[in-house]
Design a protein around this nucleic acid. Structure first.
Lengths: 217, 217
DNA sequence: TGCAGAATGGGCCGCCAGACCCATGGCGCA
DNA sequence: TGCGCCATGGGTCTGGCGGCCCATTCTGCA
C-alpha cells in the first residue's frame, strides 16, 4: 500500500490496428498499466514476448497467419495471457483455456473490466473459474440459441469440419474415423437440434457459433 | 494556416467497447480531433447524432439491433460518415456507399490513416473515389481469392442468401424471382469459380468473403 | 458490326443427401 | 440395477443436388 507501485507491463496483439492502437493508448492512460509493445499477428507476438518479457499478454484469437491461440500454444509457460475475442462463447473459451490462457473476455467488455482483468492476471490470479464466471457471463455474445447448447461434443466437432469447408459425407467420415452412416446420423441429430435441414445451413450456424476449426487439426 | 484551429467533433459507434473506448481515447489524443460521444448500437447512434450534431460520424457496420448501415440510412443528410468494418471488401463498400457514407476503412487500418480520413471527411471531401482508392487498397483484407473476383453480381447475391441460411433451390429461386434451373446454373458457375463442389462449401466461402446479407432485404 | 459474357431458361441423368426405421455397446447417474 | 443419453452402425427409399449439354436475349465493348 505504501510501497512504490510499478506499472504492469502489457504486450498487446491484434490484427485490427484501430483496436490495437486505440486500446494501447487507452491502457497507457491507466496509471498502473503500461503497454510495452504491440503485435499484429501471432509470429510478431512470439518475438515481442521473447524480446520484452511482459507481465501480461493480451491477445486476439482471430489473426492472419499464426493465430492468437497458436501463438499462446507456442509460448507456453510465459507470462499470463488474457484472450480477447469477438466470439465469446464456451467453445472458444475452452480452447483458450487449453493453450493456457488465464483470462477470456469479449471485445464487448467495457475497458475498466479489462483493466481489472489485467491487474488480476498480473497478480497471478486465474479468471477462468468461479466468481469471474458471472462477470464474464454478462459480456458473452448473446447469440447462443437454445438448441446449440444441446449439441454434443461429437456434433460440435462435426460442425467444426463443416464450417471449414469439409462437406461431403465421405470426407467427414474419414476425418472423424467413423462410418458414413454415423456421420449422417450425427448430422440428422444436428439438424433437429438447430432446426435446420441441410449442410449448407449447418455450416452457416457452425460459423455463427464460432465452432470453426482450422483444417490442420 | 494562421487561423485558430477548432477541433473536429467526432461521434463514434461500435458494439465492441474495447475498440470503442480505446479508439475514443486514441482519437482524443490527436490535437485536432475531439470525440464528443460514443454509441454501442445504431439506435444509440441516431440519438447521439441528433443530440450532438457532430462534424463527422465514425460507425461500425456490424452491431446488434440496428446496424451501422441501417443507422446511416436513417440519418441521411446528416454529417459525413466514415464506415469502419472488419470486412473491407467491395461488397460491403458499395453498401456503405449506398447509404451515403463518404469513407470506408478496414479495422486493419493504422490510426494515422483513419485520422487523415476524418480530416478529409470534415473538410467535405469524399474518400470513396479515385486516389483514396490506392490507400484503401493497401488496407483491404487480403482474403479475396482469385476466383472470388470473377463472381458476377447475381452470383454474389445468391451467395449472400446462402450465407444467411437460405439453402434450398426452391427458396433461392423464390427470393431471387428466377427459375430453379437458373439458380442451379448460377451455383454451378460459382462452384467452378471458387473451386468448390456444393452449397455447404459455398456458404462457408460466402461468409468468409463477407457476402452475408441480412434476411430482411 | 460482331463477339464475349451475363442472366435467363430447358432437359437428362447418376448419385448422394436427408428422412425414417432400427440395433448395440458404453457411460453416467439415480 | 436400470434408465437415459451418446456414439457407433445398418437398411431403405425418395427427392433433390450437381454434372453436362444446350438455347435465347441483352448488354457492353472492341
Amino acid at each position: 500500500m505504501g510501497k512504490a507501485q510499478v506499472s504492469i507491463r502489457v504486450a498487446l496483439a491484434d490484427d485490427h490496428r484501430l483496436l490495437l492502437e486505440g486500446l494501447a493508448q487507452a491502457l497507457n492512460g491507466i496509471p498502473d498499466i503500461d503497454v510495452i509493445g504491440t503485435a499484429v499477428d501471432g509470429a510478431d507476438l512470439i518475438e515481442l514476448v521473447a524480446a520484452t518479457e511482459p507481465d501480461v499478454i493480451l491477445v486476439d484469437i482471430e489473426m492472419p497467419g499464426t493465430s492468437g491461440l497458436a501463438a499462446l500454444a507456442e509460448i507456453r509457460n510465459g507470462p499470463p495471457a488474457i484472450v480477447v475475442t469477438m466470439h465469446a462463447d464456451q467453445e472458444h473459451r475452452s480452447r483458450a483455456q487449453a493453450v493456457g490462457a488465464v483470462g477470456f473476455m469479449s471485445k464487448s467488455t467495457p475497458l475498466p473490466d479489462l483493466a481489472a482483468a489485467i491487474r488480476a492476471a498480473a497478480a497471478g490470479e486465474s479468471l477462468m473459474n468461479d466468481d469471474a464466471e458471472t462477470i464474464l457471463a454478462m459480456h458473452q455474445d448473446p447469440v447462443l440459441s437454445a438448441g446449440a447448447a444441446a449439441l454434443t461434443a461429437r456434433e460440435k466437432e462435426l460442425l467444426g469440419m463443416l464450417a471449414s469447408g469439409v462437406s461431403s459425407t465421405d470426407d467427414l467420415a474419414n476425418r472423424l474415423f467413423i462410418s458414413q452412416k454415423t456421420v449422417k446420423n450425427h448430422l440428422a441429430s444436428i439438424y433437429e437440434k438447430l432446426d435446420i435441414t441441410d449442410r449448407a445451413q449447418a455450416a452457416v450456424e457452425a460459423i455463427r457459433l464460432g465452432l470453426r476449426r482450422d483444417p490442420d487439426d
